[in-house]
């Protein structure tokens, strides 16, 4: 394996990690603050991608499309929260699973009914097309670099928001003790709507960023949702910092595992067996990682509350 390939795959891993973080950040807050299991978070990511495809085509501008997408994703999250989810706070997790599973079925199908089953194509914006020479012999698409940068930027913004603002402090406090926050006179209902809408917007943002480089199709949020769950479990429920570290970890392990597992397996077995075992092993890696973390730290790397 060459250094160039390793570098490229590391960047690809970062890119996946950044997308995962954008999804997992909202997810982990919703879990932490509301003790709510939201399976429908993945469809928010999918909606983000579809919104961008639609708005960018309609306005002819990626930037304008992105702005409209963020607004629409936020709106969707708030509507969903007001209409359905808020009635399920404090209920059995099984009710939450049932309802959000129903929402997934509905939204995946709605997207299929509106846009069809075939993947949509979204162009990379003109200004961000092309590649950058990172070092001799290493070209990397500019858009993907921008994606990584944008993700890291949002992570930083989120970190400042959560640790240094009044609203962030309330959210953090809510993640460890919602009853207490409520007792302090904070309007918990509004706080929940806010957290939920914001989480939906971040997931939509991730979907929009991914739209030009991944295929935009019904159900695209389902698999990434489960990877985001893995991120939340590894990072610790309710911890944005944990989600960040875990997202990068999962992104790197998954991407590097997939590209190098077969060659690594060749070291210990013959090449046809390695061609079989390599991909199988690669697809299991992040879950094995999760199991290992849980074995050592059942509450994740950065448990949000000590109690």
């Amino acid at each position: 394996m060459s250094t160039t390939l390793l570098l490229i795959q590391t960047l690809n891993g970062l890119q996946l990690g950044v997308l995962l973080f954008l999804i997992a950040a909202g997810l982990t807050l919703v879990f932490g603050v509301m003790d709510f299991i939201n399976l429908a978070h993945g469809v928010q990511y999918m909606l983000g991608a579809y919104f961008l495809a639609a708005f960018a085509a309609a306005t002819g501008s990626f930037a304008l499309g992105l702005a409209l997408t963020l607004a629409a994703a936020l709106l969707c999250g708030v509507v969903l929260e007001r209409l359905v989810l808020r009635h399920l706070y404090g209920r059995d997790h099984l009710d939450q699973v049932l309802a959000t599973f129903g929402i997934i079925l509905f939204l995946n199908e709605a997207v299929r009914a509106l846009w069809g089953s075939a993947p949509l194509h979204v162009d990379i914006p003109e200004a961000l097309s092309g590649a950058v020479r990172l070092m001799p012999g290493l070209l990397y698409p500019l858009y993907r670099l921008v994606l990584i940068g944008a993700g890291l930027g949002v992570a930083l913004l989120l970190y400042v928001l959560v640790t240094h603002t009044r609203i962030g402090m309330r959210v953090r406090a809510g993640a460890s003790d919602a009853a207490m926050v409520s007792a302090l006179g904070v309007n918990v209902g509004r706080l929940f709507t806010l957290v939920f809408g914001f989480g939906a917007m971040l997931a939509g943002f991730a979907g929009a960023l991914a739209a030009p480089i991944l295929s935009v199709e019904p159900g695209m949020g389902d698999n990434i949702l489960i990877l985001a769950f893995v991120v939340v479990v590894i990072g610790g429920i309710g911890s944005v910092r944990g989600a960040f570290v875990a997202a990068l970890l999962v992104g790197l392990v998954d991407t590097l595992g997939r590209s190098f597992s077969t060659s690594l397996m060749r070291l210990v077995m013959d090449s046809s067996a390695a061609a079989q075992a390599g991909p199988a092993l690669a697809s299991m890696l992040v879950y094995v990682l999760m199991a290992l973390v849980l074995a050592v730290r059942p509450r994740g790397l950065f448990p949000a509350s000590a109690g």
Binding site: D95, L98, G102, I103, L105, F106, E109
Partner: peptide, 12 residues
């Protein structure tokens, strides 16, 4: 599924 999904939501 456009019908089945909301049915699940209602049931929950």
């Amino acid at each position: 599924r456009l019908i089945f999904g909301p049915l699940l939501v209602l049931a929950a």
